[in-house]
């Protein structure tokens, strides 16, 4: 009896396990196939358009694989690029490994991927190791606070002092009497590197929490009244409020939007970089992808992904 029960329970557990997997699998394939259908529809639409206007949009008969590897922040951008690229070059497969900027640059240097993706400008030593950087887009870094906070604007200098712990209470910058909790990302994160570089706080930040994803920072800020944090513009949503930033005391307060990042008036922004080997030519397929990513055609993709195209 007992044995029968335990066998039954095990069976139920196993079924649960498998249905769980199957469920997620169907969900993901479902997502992929719906994406494919979408892109198929889009390409059909484009083809008919091309048929009418006789320019651009037709598929090109080039085949191969393009491997890209790097920044997790660039995931949305890469998804968009890949999807549209596939319409034009149906026989080229683009792979994307979201491993982080550091790994991406390393892999590009080692030649184990075609294009390394970095969400920070390359360091001199990385350029010296034989890489060329191409800025494809710019991402604004939004300074976010809890919705209850009454502070709406800060200067870069004030942000710097908050980050280093010199300003520790919101009352010092015109807010309520509340201790400041500065929440950021872990060492090595592209967003953190960009924030610290742009505010000049490298190695000087005094964090209350170091979290491992943009979403975690947003959640922590939205649940901590005295919190301030940094996230990329593309992941900004209604759960937190973004501060307006003044480059210095004299300049106007600028909200973090795509327009202000593009025209350069928003002070805290970072580049999205394609890192390629300087001494070796890209494969035909990789070159096609690279050309596509810097073309005017791709501009809308960047905008859709919440970042600003560089050209």
């Amino acid at each position: 009896m007992k044995k029968a029960m335990s066998v039954l329970l095990t069976a139920i557990l196993c079924t649960g396990l498998f249905t769980g997997c199957a469920g997620s699998e169907t969900a993901s394939t479902g997502g992929a196939s719906s994406q494919e259908t979408q892109s198929a529809q889009a390409s059909q639409a484009e083809e008919s358009e091309a048929g009418a206007s006789q320019e651009g949009g037709e598929t090109v008969d080039l085949s191969g694989t393009v491997s890209t590897n790097g920044s997790t922040s660039m995931e949305e951008v890469m998804m968009g690029l890949t999807e549209y690229f596939k319409e034009k070059y149906p026989n080229i497969t683009v792979t994307y490994d979201p491993t982080g900027s550091g790994t991406g640059i390393q892999q590009a240097t080692a030649g184990s991927c075609d294009i390394g993706l970095s969400s920070r400008a390359l360091k001199q030593e990385e350029l010296d190791a034989g890489l060329t950087e191409t800025v494809v887009a710019k991402d604004g870094i939004a300074i976010v606070v809890n919705k209850e906070n009454t502070v709406t604007e800060l200067t870069v200098d004030q942000i710097t002092k908050i980050a280093t712990g010199e300003i520790a209470n919101w009352s010092e910058v015109g807010g309520p009497d509340m201790e400041i909790a500065f929440i950021g990302r872990e060492a090595g994160s592209g967003t953190r590197g960009a924030f610290e570089e742009l505010t000049g706080t490298e190695e000087a930040c005094s964090y209350a929490q170091e979290l491992t994803s943009t979403g975690a920072v947003r959640t922590a800020v939205s649940t901590t009244p005295g919190a301030i944090g940094y996230i990329s513009l593309s992941s900004l949503d209604d759960s937190v409020s973004a501060l307006m930033v003044k480059a210095d005391d004299a300049s106007p307060a600028v909200a973090c939007t795509e327009e202000t990042v593009l025209d350069g008036s928003y002070a805290i922004q970072r580049p999205f970089v394609f890192a390629t080997k300087s001494d070796a030519a890209l494969s035909e397929a990789a070159q096609a992808f690279y050309d596509f990513a810097v073309s005017d055609e791709a501009a809308q993709i960047y905008i859709d992904a919440g970042v600003v195209p560089a050209n």
Binding site: A187, G190, E210, T212
Partner: peptide, 12 residues
């Protein structure tokens, strides 16, 4: 180990 692994490189 877990928090820095994804973006680490070199000696880090």
């Amino acid at each position: 180990v877990a928090s820095e692994m994804s973006y680490s490189s070199g000696l880090q």
